[in-house]
Design a protein around this nucleic acid. Sequence first.
DNA 1: GCCAACGTTGGC
DNA 2: GCCAACGTTGGC
Length: 156
Amino acid sequence: MTDRKRYWLMKSEPDAFSIDDLRKVGVEPWNGVRNYQARNFMRDGMQVGDGVLFYHSNCAVPGISGIAKVASKAYPDETQFDPKSHYHDPKATREEPRWMLVDVAFERKLKRVIPLEEIKQHADVLGEGFALTSKGSRLSVMPVTAAQWKLLLSLE
DNA sequence: GCCAACGTTGGC
DNA sequence: GCCAACGTTGGC
């Protein structure tokens, strides 16, 4: 039995990898996640076909810029094995990889970026547990409920 | 560029 | 197992 489609939000710095970059390449391995909670969501929670809100962080107007979908099951992040990579992890081995990722496929750009500033105005509806609007949270991969997904996209 | 909040590391 | 030190995230 397969579960229902789930929803996620994934942050990326547009200087490094933006929604336009994803549109160009089509599918991208979501490498470089080095946070256990975020990894666990990718490894244990994601299924092919799940919806992804593509979020631009650390930029002039942080916010949701597009929609993507999960395009693979979780598999080891190659960059952890590469000594030359910024994401190299000397404690990771091929026998026991530490970091997992999924492929993410472009779906569409939003008509406009939905700014974090605007999203915050709905923080009460989104709920206290929502990492994007909870103070101090830096989680870069987080689950989104169907209701949150609907609300966020209604702002487009 | 600043800095608050957070996660991880490592000495003890 | 505690916790200080450190590095990183990411909004502003």
